[in-house]
Design a binder for these strands. Sequence first.
DNA 1: GCATAAAGTTAAGCCCACTTAACCAAAAAG
DNA 2: CTTTTTGGTTAAGTGGGCTTAACTTTATGC
Lengths: 149, 149
Amino acid sequence: MTKSDSFTQAVRSWVDVSTQRSMRGWSHHAKATGLSMPQFSIMMQLYYRGACGLSEISERFEITNAAASQHVDNLVQAGLLERSEDPHDRRAKHIQLSAKGKSMIEKGIGERYRWIDQLAEGLSEKERVRTAEALTVLTEAARKLDQST
Amino acid sequence: MTKSDSFTQAVRSWVDVSTQRSMRGWSHHAKATGLSMPQFSIMMQLYYRGACGLSEISERFEITNAAASQHVDNLVQAGLLERSEDPHDRRAKHIQLSAKGKSMIEKGIGERYRWIDQLAEGLSEKERVRTAEALTVLTEAARKLDQST
DNA sequence: GCATAAAGTTAAGCCCACTTAACCAAAAAG
DNA sequence: CTTTTTGGTTAAGTGGGCTTAACTTTATGC
């Protein structure tokens, strides 16, 4: 019990400090680019899960088609997204990141994670190896949780 | 270089999966309570850093006094915050969580972290000890970063 | 004691995300 | 071939978070 508690405590502390950090990075990047939270989220999602139709976006974010369409439209006009006709279904649209959009997201990711490199510098080689192993175990376990849920 | 990269990669993956998790918990709690993001943040901050005046809130969130005052007012009317006069400075207000607010936040924290307990169940005793140690090291290092910045 | 600064509040207004409702075009169903 | 469903857009309106500006009250500096 007490063992499990100290585990819980360690994870909580780390989750707190790391989310705080990565949020700070995000908000910095947000101000620099002028992107709003939902805009950024949509682009991130297109970056990681690839191109998709409009209704997939509204489903994933649980908003109406209308809202999704407006966001996409703004991003298209900003030159960050490309919206084309789906050749197999002429009703549907094919939405993907433009080159500009892709590079912006990659820059954002770099920004958001820069503190991790700084973190690495404060650790010994041994510590780096050991913590990397531990985190891999945790990440795996968390992914299993995702699948079972 | 490659060593540092695998460290970076491990941390990134874990940060991704854990922020996603804790965000999901948060958004669930948000819908249940009807609290907005800034409202929730203000209450969290009062929970962790204790009672304070209004201008401290506006400083911490980088918003104007007017905005902070409005948020606080809403939360007071919802019975989640108590706003009283500071005995030492009659201009200032003393803002703190009400009993109701405190218990709501504690419930929220529990909600947000429940997945960590599930995570613990999927690990052996040995893994728990080792990962807890690793995370403690990381948390420490991150806190040092905060101080130096 | 008087001018100035500081803590908070209130009101008016802006912007943005979101919704509903009406709509068009293409595909699927019968 | 008609009807219905699906994918998407547009317009109008709502609500929230924020700002500026004007104001009240209390504390501070000289």
